[in-house]
Amino acid sequence: MADKPKTSKAAMRRQKLEEATDMLRCLSFGPRQSNNTAIYSFLACLEMKPENTWQEACNPSMGITPIIEFIKRHYGVKYAPNTRETIRDEAIKHFVEAGLLVRNPNCPTRPTNSGKTCYQIEPSALRLIHRYGTPDWPLGLTEYLSSRERVIKELQRKREFSRIPVCLPSGEMASISPGGQNPLIKQIIEEFCPRFSPGGIIVYIGDAENKFLHLQADYLKQLCVVSLHQPKCRTW
């Protein structure tokens, strides 16, 4: 009996890309969120080599640089080191917002812009991915989609729990992301300002997660200062 012809590396890569694209579409990611960059990043976060089955997918914690290296090593696509922001904005950010990826699961208080920031496939999503291509996939997909909103809310709750509360001079409360210089910002607003600039107004607060956390645009106009403009919200 003749041996079956071996599938070429290129063919296996194409098949994985097609399957990953189909999976992301099934998970309600639109064309912009399932572009090539997103697909390769998705495969890297699962450590899915072209020859692997979906049942072999795993969820290691990976930073942007290891993701780039994995894509180059196993799919032959090179991303320059200065494209890290592109991968973060065009792929990773959407996956985090949708609850597919968890940011810094080993250290929720790590600053967003830390060089140690890493991402991990959310456990219930990994269980679903293991069912891709099996008779259990349709039911698993339905169950996952029906519970995804709950998963997203739970991840958001955990992120909010780690945020730093800040009391503004007006008595209004704000919260800033943990880590980095933000504990110092809290001290400046709550301790330095009342002592050395009593009656002052906090005009602007921004951090790595939200550039427009607090903005007194009308007050800036009164001072004839060109106001900052908030970017349009993205949808995934």
Rank of each mutant, 00 (worst) to 15 (best):
K6V: 12
K6M: 10
A11V: 11
M12R: 06
R14Q: 04
D22W: 10
P31N: 06
S34G: 03
T37K: 07
L46T: 04
E47K: 02
E47N: 07
M48C: 07
P50R: 11
W54D: 06
W54K: 02
Q55N: 14
Q55D: 13
A57H: 10
I64A: 05
I68R: 00
E69M: 08
H74E: 05
Y75R: 10
K78F: 13
Y79L: 12
A80G: 11
I92F: 00
V96A: 04
E97H: 11
A98D: 05
G99K: 13
V102L: 02
V102N: 01
N104Q: 08
G115E: 03
Q120M: 07
I121E: 00
E122S: 02
P123Y: 01
G133Y: 12
G133Q: 07
D136M: 14
L141S: 06
L141D: 03
T142S: 12
S147A: 12
E149G: 07
I152L: 04
Q156E: 10
K158T: 10
K158H: 09
R159D: 05
I164F: 00
V166F: 06
V166L: 05
V166I: 12
C167H: 03
C167W: 03
L168T: 13
S170P: 00
E172K: 04
S175Y: 05
S177N: 06
G180A: 08
Q187L: 12
P194N: 14
R195G: 07
S197K: 15
A217F: 05
A217Q: 15
D218G: 03
Y219L: 14
L223W: 13
C224Y: 00
V225D: 14
V225R: 07
V226M: 13
R234V: 02
